[in-house]
Design a protein around this nucleic acid. Sequence first.
RNA 1: UGGGGCGUAGCCAAGCGGUAAGGCAACGGGUUUUGAUCCCGUCAUGCGCAGGUUCGAUCCCUGCCGCCCCAGCCA
Length: 567
Amino acid sequence: MSVDDSHEHGQPAGGSNFLRNLIAEQIASGEHTGAVVTRFPPEPNGYLHIGHAASICLNFGLAEYFEGACRLRFDDTNPDAEDQEYIDSIQADIRWLGFEWDGEVRYTSQYFATLYDYALHLIAAGLAYVDELSPDEIREYRGTLTEPGKDSPYRDRDPAESKAMFEAMARGEYAEGTACLRARIDMAAGNINLRDPVIYRIRNKAHHQTGDTWCVYPSYDFAHGQSDAIEGVTHSICTLEFEDHRPLYNWLLEHLPVPAQPVQYEFARVNLNYTITSKRKLRRLVEEQIVDGWDDPRMPTISGIRRRGYTPASIRAFCDMVGVSRSGGTVDAAMLEHAIRDDLNKNAARAMCVMDPLKVVITNWPAGHVETLTARGHPDRDDMPERDLPLTREVYIEKADFREAANKKYKRLVLGKKVRLRNAYVIEAHDVVKNEAGEVVEVHCTYDPDTLGDNPADGVKPKGVIHWVSASHGKQALVRVYDRLFAVENPSREDDLLDGLNPFSLQIHPGCWIEPGLADVAAETRVQFERTGYFVADRYDHAAGAPVFNRVVALRDTWAKIEQRGA
RNA sequence: UGGGGCGUAGCCAAGCGGUAAGGCAACGGGUUUUGAUCCCGUCAUGCGCAGGUUCGAUCCCUGCCGCCCCAGCCA
C-alpha cells in the first residue's frame, strides 16, 4: 500500500537544455577542462519554493550529468533577514528532492576574513574607497536610469586613509549608515551596477554563523564571485535578473588575487500561474495566518508541496518538462498536476473512500453476514498486495452516485437500474427512504449473487461502477480537499494579494468512510481513492486509528466537463 | 531619450541556412469492474512586424513593435 522510496528517488534529474549543451561544447572544444563544479546558493531568509526546485534540479543535474560536483552554499551576507530555521529547512528540502551536495555545507560567511583581505587589496590598488555620504545622498549621486551619476566627494580619498577607516569600521568605530566601502568603477556607466557599487556595509548585528566577529559585511556582489572562485566553482548559474551584475562579477574577479575564474550564466526563473513565488508575499501569507504555516499544503514551498503529497520524482519530472531557457514565462499549473498524476497513477495503491456518504441497504443480504472480497492493489501492477474488502448488508456510497431519475448519460445508481459496486456485485435500486426535508437518506437495493466477476445472467452489462465502503467494517477518516490557493491566474497583479484568494482552497470532510486496511497506514503514504483522486496520509496530523488524508490532486474528470456542458 | 535581456500554437519548449521535435492543455475515437489509466487521431503553409541578402531564411542583415529586469548600505 505504500509508495516506497525506490519510486521517489529513481531517475537522474535534468533533461537537455541550453546550459548542458553549452558545457558539452566547452568540453568538446577544450575550452573547459577538469570537473564541472556548480553550486546552489540560497540565502537562508525563507523557505525554498517550486522556483528554487528548478534551480536545484539544474545545478545538481548538471553536476550529475558531467560527473562533477554541486555544492550547497548559504549566501549569508546579510544577518538582518537570516535565520537558522531556514538553514535547516533548506537542507531538508534539498535532500527530500533527492539531491546530496558535495562535501560539507558551505557558508559565504566562512570566507569573511578572505573577503575582508580582498577589500583591502582593492583599496590599496585605488579601486575602492570609504564613502561617508549618507544612504540618501548615495542614491542622489547615483543618477537615474537615463542620467549619469556624479562622483562622491570622497571618491579620491587617499588609499591609506580609506584603509585606516575601513579597519576602524571593522572595529565597530562607525555607526551603521555613516560609512561604507565602494568599488571605484564608473559613475557614468549605463549599467547602474557599475556606478561605484557598495561592497561593504556596517551591520552592528550578530550573525547566525559568525556571531559578533564582524561589524562589516560584504554585499552580494562582493561575495558571490569571490566565493565561487575560492570554492572552484566553474559554472555559476543564476537567474536573469543578475545578468546586469555579470560585468561587476567579472570586474571584481579581474582585479582581485582570486584562485580561479568562474563564469556566471543566467537562465529564466519559472513562474507558475495561480500562485506566487515571492518570499516576501509567501511570508505575508504565513504571518497573517492566511495559511497554516510555510508547509501548508496549499503553499508553493517545497515543504508545502511535500505535505500536499507530491513526490520528489514528480517535482523533478516537472522541472524536466518545463525545461531551462532564457525566455521568461509562466507555466500552467496543469503541468505540475500532470507530473504528480503521472507518478501516482503508476505508483500509488488503489483504495476506496466515501467522502459524502449515503447509506445503501442490500435487502436480500442476510443481516450480520460478512463476505470478505479481495481487490487488486493496483490495476496493472502485480507487485502491490491485494486487499481485503468486507462486504456487509449496509454500505455507504457517495451521494453524488445516486439519483432517483436520470438520463442515459448518468452511469451511476438510479432507482430501478443496475450498477456495479466496485470489486463486488451488481446491485439494483428499488426503493428510497427520505427525511422530512424530502432528501434521500437511504437507498434500498438488491444484489445479484452471480455477478462477482461476471456480468448479470441477462447479459446486460451495467454501464457504471461506483465505489463503496462497508458501514459496519469501514473506518472513519478526516479528509481535507485542497484546491488552488488563488482563484486568479496572476495573484501578483491584484491590488491586494489577498483579493485573489480562492475561498474554497480548503474543504474539510470530517465524516468520510475508508476501507478498513487504510486506517493504519504510515504518515505520508500515498494512495488513489478510486474515482476520486490521489491522497496522502498527512505528514503530521495522521495517526493510526485517527486517519487524516490530504487530497494531492483530483483524478482527471471528463464527467465534470460533460455535466458542465449539459448544465 | 540609459543599460541588459526576451519574442516559435492557449502554456512550456526544440530548432543554429535545406522546407516547424516533444510535452502540457484542448478536441475526436477505441479499450476498460476507476467517467481514471492506456491506445489511436486532430491541433503553427506558420516562427512579433516590415524590408533586405540567398536557389532557399525561424535561423544571416537592417529598421520597427511588444514584454521583462536594473536607480537597496537586499539577494
